[in-house]
Each structure stands twice: as structure tokens, then as C-alpha cells.
Simulated assay, not measured.
Amino acid sequence: MAEPTINYQQLAEKIKSWGEELGFAGVGICGIDLAEHEKPLLDWLDNNYHGSMDYMARHGLMRARAYELVPGTLRVVSVRMNYLPEGAKFAQTLKQPDKAYVSRYALGRDYHKLMRKRLKQLGEKIKSHCASFNYRPFVDSAPVLERPLAENAGLGWVGKHSLVIDEKSGSWFFLGELLVDIPLPVDTKPENKCGSCVACMTICPTGAIVEPYVVDARKCISYLTIEHKGVIDEALRPLMGNRIYGCDDCQLICPWNKYASLSNESDFQSRHNLDNSNLLDLFAFDEPTFMKTFEGSPIRRIGIDAWHRNIAIALGNAPYQQEVVDALEQKLSQCSDLVAEHVTWALHQQHKKATLVVEPKRQTLRLIRAVEKGLPRDA
């Protein structure tokens, strides 16, 4: 008996409808040709912009060749899921240097498992409508250029900060992919509407967006606090402020995010008061507390040393407080060499600020005495 002919146009429409039912904010379909991205990828690697992320270089051009990753792949079903929680408290946290700023994508539960599960459900729905069908779901779990794929699938355009922007929903969303072996009709790549705007480039605290659409990870606070496992460049530490896990500045400043959509996923809402936590409280975590608190969170994967390293930098950037000095000194007696490097720096910063706190008082007293004696004020 001959296999029934599949109407791929109708199937594509069904896939998008199923995706929405599963909680995806957008579903698009694209081909697998990313040849135009191969040279920029190689240039980025040659410039060592990937920093210590060796896996970026290890897979090389496979990232632009889905057919090498999963032989037989003909199309990519690209999806996005909004993650911006209600009451994100951006400015409220960034303006209080004694608070800890955590990138808003990491306030709730880890998105990887949730999205992968739903992508698999989507794949099974497609499979039930095809006599022969193979698929592989990916969520940050494979060497694929997910942002160019999402752009080709019509989910938005890649902005100058390298993130995908949708004109109706902003950029606060996760991406995921299904690599499939059926010839679905493809969607249209949207117009890039960044225009002459360079707000994301100028707002970046460390100047990590070295040219439009090119990010030097070695300067990026998200990379430094999450991916990088070693010592953070001393020149970059004062620029990190109170950002202890990730950075959202380039998205915060983007004009398109005034249209941003909030997430209705309970898993992405803030847990453990992470949107309003004091640095000292988080710095006091020992490893068991860290592991327990961040069970099911993307934060857990950086480990306790990077956690203390990042917070030590933030404490060094905070205003002088004796309790900060006390906490740093206590940590210094019971931490790894990596953490000690940053705690020592933070103590030095606090001691410098202590001097500045005392010195103006001395100058004021000197001025008062000079006036009382009728001396020139610069005497």
C-alpha cells in the first residue's frame, strides 16, 4: 500500500499551532544553508573572541552545517519561549550596589529541560502525522548557530548585540530547535530593523560589543561570570558593578524591548528572592547551601568557587561597610586560591574607600579650624 501524500504546507501550519499549544511564543521553519555565516564564525574564532570556551572551536564549521550534526536533516523548526518574569526589578537592583544582580533569565528554574521536553512533544506530534520521520531536539545542547537559524525561520532579526529581536515581543526569550528530515516549506527572514541605533554597543559596561553583531566574549560580563572558570581581568572588575551572574544591559537599553512580552511560565518566575537579595547573604553560602538552593537552576552549574568569585568582585565594588570587610576577611581564611585572588582585590578596594570616607571629614575639620583662626582656606 502506497504511503499517503503529505501536504507539507498544512503540516507546517499544524506544527506552528501545536507549538503555540505547548507554550512556545513563536515557531518558524527554515532551511539548513548557513554558508554566509561560515567566514564570520571562523573570523570570530581566529580573533579568540570565544575566550576559554574551547568547545566553540572544537566543533568548528559544524555549527553552520546542521547536516553534519544530524545527517539527513532538511529543515529546522525553530522556537522561542518568553522568559521575562513579572516585576523584573531591573533598575531597582542595579541602583543598589549592596544587592546582587542576576540575569533575568536565571531567576527561575533551568529552561533547558522544560524546553527540550516540549520540543520532544512537538516532534512526537509531527511523527504521528508522518509515515517516516526523524527529529532531534536541541536547547543550547549542540553545536548549532541557533540565532541565524531563528532569524532565517522568521522569529526575529539578529541585533547588533548578537541576540534575536522580534519587533512585537522584544528579545527576552529562549531559543530551541528541532532538526527534521522532511521538506517543510520555509518561512521568510525578517528585515533587520536596528537601523543606525548603537545603544546596545554604547551601554555595554565593558565594551564587549566590539563592532556591530560581534561580541568579544572575553569582555562580556555574562561570559566572565558564567562561562569563564578562572581569574577575571582586574581591569574589568570595577566595570562589573553588582552583576554576579550574567548581564542584561544590552537588552535593557534596546528600544524594541518596550514591546517585550512577559512570560506566563511559572518556572521562569523569580525563586529564592533572587531579584532582591543582598550580596552579603549570598556570599555566606557554603557549598551544600549553594547546591540545595540552586537545585533545578542554571546557576548551579557555575559551582561555588565562581559564585564566591563573582560576589567578591561585587563586594569590592560596593560602598565601604565594615561588615563587608569583615565578611571578606572571614572568607579569605577558608577559600580556594581562585576566590582568594578576588577577595584580596575586594578588600583592597574596600580599604581605599574607607580612606575616602574618613578623609573628607578631616578636610572639613581643617577648613573649620582655618576659618576660625582667620587663615586662608588653602593654608
Rank of each mutant, 00 (worst) to 15 (best):
D248G: 07
N278W: 14
N264R: 12
A260I: 01
L279V: 04
L252Q: 05
E265I: 07
C250W: 03
L262H: 12
S266M: 09
Y259I: 01
D248Q: 02
L262V: 03
S261F: 03
L282Q: 06
N276D: 13
F268K: 01
D267A: 15
L279Y: 13
C250R: 05
S266R: 13
C250A: 10
D248H: 04
S270G: 10
I253R: 12
N276V: 03
L279C: 01
N276W: 08
P255S: 09
D275P: 01
P288K: 04
R271S: 09
D281H: 15
L262K: 14
N278D: 14
N278L: 11
P288G: 08
Q269K: 11
R271V: 09
F290K: 02
D249R: 00
D248A: 02
I253P: 11
S270N: 08
E287V: 05
D281V: 03
C250H: 06
F283N: 01
A260Y: 09
Q251D: 08
F285R: 02
S277K: 10
N273E: 11
L280Q: 05
D275E: 14
D249P: 04
F283Q: 00
G246Y: 03
N257C: 02
S266A: 12
D249E: 07
C250L: 06
K258D: 04
N278G: 12
H272S: 09
N276M: 01
S261H: 15
C247W: 05
A284L: 06
N278M: 14
L280V: 01
F268W: 06
N257D: 00
D267Q: 15
R271H: 12
Q251E: 14
D267C: 08
H272Y: 14
L252F: 12
L262Y: 14
F285T: 05
W256R: 06
C254Q: 10
C254M: 07
S270P: 15
R271C: 11
E265F: 14
L280T: 09
R271A: 10
N278K: 15
L280D: 08
M291T: 09
C254G: 09
H272E: 11
G246F: 11
S263R: 12
N278I: 09
S266V: 11
A260F: 07
S263V: 08
L262A: 11
N276S: 08
S266K: 15
S266N: 13
A260G: 03
E265S: 11
D286V: 04
S277W: 05
N257G: 01
A260P: 00
M291R: 15
F285K: 03
L282Y: 02
Q251T: 03
N264C: 14
W256F: 13
L279E: 01
W256Y: 08
D249H: 05
Q269G: 13
P288W: 10
F268Q: 07
D275H: 12
L282P: 02
P288A: 14
F285L: 12
N273Q: 15
E287Q: 06
I253M: 10
F283A: 05
N273P: 03
M291N: 13
L280Y: 07
P288I: 07
Q269Y: 08
N273D: 15
N257H: 02
N257L: 01
D249Q: 02
P255G: 05
